[in-house]
Design a protein around this nucleic acid. Structure first.
Lengths: 248, 248
DNA sequence: CGGGCTCTTGATACGCCTCAATGCCCGTGG
DNA sequence: CCACGGGCATTGAGGCGTATCAAGAGCCCG
């Protein structure tokens, strides 16, 4: 079981990257709902920041004062039980929008798992902007629906899939996440630790490690490094992840 | 393992209940975003229907042509694996809005578990209505955010809670669902079978049954009937559900 | 070259699943 | 009114998959 390390949050202001124009996530994030000529208004209310690894910048239960948009790096979203059991509900990379809680408090915590750049919007200001640009609200609704579908898929994984099916599903989703619009990748990077993979899949570190070893021994994947994996038999993994290979 | 029974869908038109004015879900559903004076427009595009028990009216992967609003009864939302493993992602009662998929196909299936009344909106028509009434879109976004939070809570349950914690969480959520705005109920009804509870909690029928028997024997609950339960020790259940009673 | 980390691998334990039998409820028909 | 049958729920015995506990290996960095 992994206990969340909670370090003091020291956000470093970074006004050298304040323009939304050259934001890497510009076209893929919710900001794509804003026309180029109106971008200045979005830029005006956004505060860009840089966080180092292992920074908790959203804590479950705290007043939800801001929305965040990741522009570089990866964060984990998670919930904790009092005894330290952790469930990671998702990993958010560039373009991902955080803080979609309608309630007054955050429903989950968020922590960087590598250096991250993000931009922050205060709730009242973004709300005002939504009023001016209805397309922004439509885009947020789309985003929420997509996350809902992802969450349902994850419930199927957590509730009904075996350890091997979970790891296979995870590897494939990682491969697709790297190149969202391009061809499916055969090689992928894992910015998270085994413990984080385990907490995401509802397993233990040891089980994740064992399954990966088994996949490697069976020739379905190749371990380039502990955080680099090549999928040598993608079709087989897809079958396993979909629940078609009960025995194998 | 429970296999979904797929019966042919025979929707019965029911124009005797066509007015939104006296709809039981009027004030609690997304329709509350519409003013009374504009209700006629909503009523115009809604088609009211009655479905008997065990009707599949949304099938995962099919073209998402409609949205639904439950006005009476309960439905289960679920996903299936090829070999029949089922994960129920939620139960929807009066006021619940279905079909929030932004994609062209439904991400899950839906089946009535008791007689149900619902109203149906075609996607293009509701989209047009959203354009006329921005408050409707705002309301849908709120709904989606709430469901997202619920889904994350369920992921924590499926990934990290023990069987007893899952059942306790379920009983409490049922008690609250019955009276959303009122005082917490001590007595609750379970319209679903043990199999459906199991498929919702990521357990088996037998485990659900055993845990309920154990709770009863320990005096934490009273079984009035197989589908009626009284919570005799709510505080204890809440502690267990929250993960505070590791040993007990 | 040592310290601390994560990852891997092995031996064992345990919680939940599987398989199987029995009980309960209720509708149906003699 | 009671016998019968089917579905669902309960209960028991045993097995399996994953967790737990423990040790060692690889790696980074000082």
């Amino acid at each position: 079981m992994n206990f969340a390390q909670v370090r003091p949050v020291v956000l470093t202001e970074d006004h050298t990257h304040s323009a939304c124009d050259d934001c890497g996530a510009r076209t893929i994030s919710v900001c794509s709902a804003i026309e180029d000529r109106d971008l200045a208004q979005l830029s005006a209310i956004a505060v860009h920041r840089t966080l180092e690894k292992s920074r908790v910048f959203i804590e479950e239960g705290e007043a939800a004062s801001d929305f965040f948009n990741i522009t570089a790096g990866t964060v984990k979203l998670f919930k904790l039980l009092p005894d330290g059991r952790q469930q990671i509900t998702g990993f958010a990379g560039p373009g991902h929008f955080l803080g979609l809680a309608v309630a007054d408090t955050y429903a989950f915590s968020a922590e960087t798992i590598e250096p991250v750049r993000l931009c922050r919007f205060s709730r009242p200001r973004l709300r005002a902007l939504m009023h001016d640009f209805p397309a922004l609200e439509t885009r947020l609704l789309q985003t929420a629906c997509n996350e809902l579908a992802t969450a349902q898929e994850q419930m199927l994984l957590l509730g009904r899939k075996t350890a091997r099916e979970r790891v296979a599903s995870f590897l494939l989703s990682r491969a697709d996440a790297a190149h969202p619009c391009g061809h499916p990748q055969t090689e992928l990077r894992l910015p998270m630790t085994r413990g984080e993979i385990a907490d995401y899949l509802g397993l233990t570190i040891e089980t994740v490690s064992r399954v990966l070893s088994r996949f490697h021994a069976d020739g379905q994947i190749t371990r380039i490094a502990t955080d680099r994996i090549r999928l040598t038999n993608r079709a087989w993994l897809e079958n396993l992840a979909a629940g078609n290979l009960t025995g194998a």
